[in-house]
Simulated assay, not measured.
Amino acid sequence: MGARAGVAGAAGVERGEGVGLERGGRGAGGRRRVLGERGAASVVAVAVGAVWFGVVVVGVHVGEAVVARHRLGAAADLGALAAAGEVASGVAHACSRAEWVVARMGGRMTACLVEGWEVTVRVSGEATVFGTPSARARAGPAET
């Protein structure tokens, strides 16, 4: 430990132990060490954790919106198919059947349009962070 420890001011400082050296001093391995570095890694780790948390929160909200949109699409499809199957019983009956199916699937029917044998159903859902999801579906006989 000799002369170098005496210059630094403490015996353990040469090995990088204890409180930091004065500005311009050298720590373990010959690296410069500045006072006040202790805890800097913790601050960086907390910042990185906060960023990851934010990314996860945004990802969850995007996933929620995508799932809601897909469920509404399925509700619109099945509602249109149910209405198309009931068109022969009348427009009112066909649209009420579509509304029944859509409501059971968690959606809200906003429009039901019957043109001949084709039925178009519009559905909306509950608002999410990204707005109110909606879907539209059309069903009828296949054209040949």
Rank of each mutant, 00 (worst) to 15 (best):
G39S: 09
R69L: 09
V121H: 05
S89E: 11
G59R: 06
P141M: 04
C95K: 01
R15V: 05
V43Y: 03
R32F: 13
R138K: 12
R26E: 05
V48I: 14
A98G: 10
G18Q: 07
G30A: 14
G20E: 13
G30I: 07
R23I: 04
G27E: 11
V66L: 15
G125S: 10
A45K: 02
V101P: 01
V46R: 04
L81Y: 07
R4C: 00
R138I: 11
G27P: 02
R31Y: 10
A68H: 07
L81F: 08
A135G: 05
R38N: 09
D77E: 12
E143L: 12
A68T: 13
A11D: 13
G25R: 10
T120S: 14
G116E: 05
E17D: 14
G131Q: 07
G20N: 09
R32A: 12
A41D: 10
R38H: 06
V121E: 02
R38G: 13
G6Q: 11
A75I: 11
F130C: 06
G29F: 09
A98V: 05
V91I: 02
A127S: 15
W117Y: 02
V121G: 07
A76T: 07
P133I: 09
S96P: 02
E37M: 04
E17R: 14
G54F: 08
G125I: 09
A84C: 02
A80M: 11
R69C: 01
E126P: 15
D77T: 11
V13P: 00
A5Y: 00
V56I: 15
V43H: 07
G49K: 08
E86P: 00
G9N: 04
V129R: 15
D77C: 11
G116T: 03
A83L: 09
V44S: 10
S134L: 01
V56D: 00
A50P: 01
V91M: 01
A88V: 14
G12V: 08
P133M: 08
F53Q: 01
L72E: 08
A83S: 11
R104W: 01
V67G: 02
G106T: 06
W52I: 15
V121K: 04
G125P: 10
E143K: 03
R38Q: 13
G39H: 06
A111T: 10
V43D: 06
A82P: 08
V19Y: 04
V66T: 07
T120W: 02
E126V: 14
A8S: 11
W117G: 12
A103I: 00
V7F: 04
F130A: 14
E126Y: 00
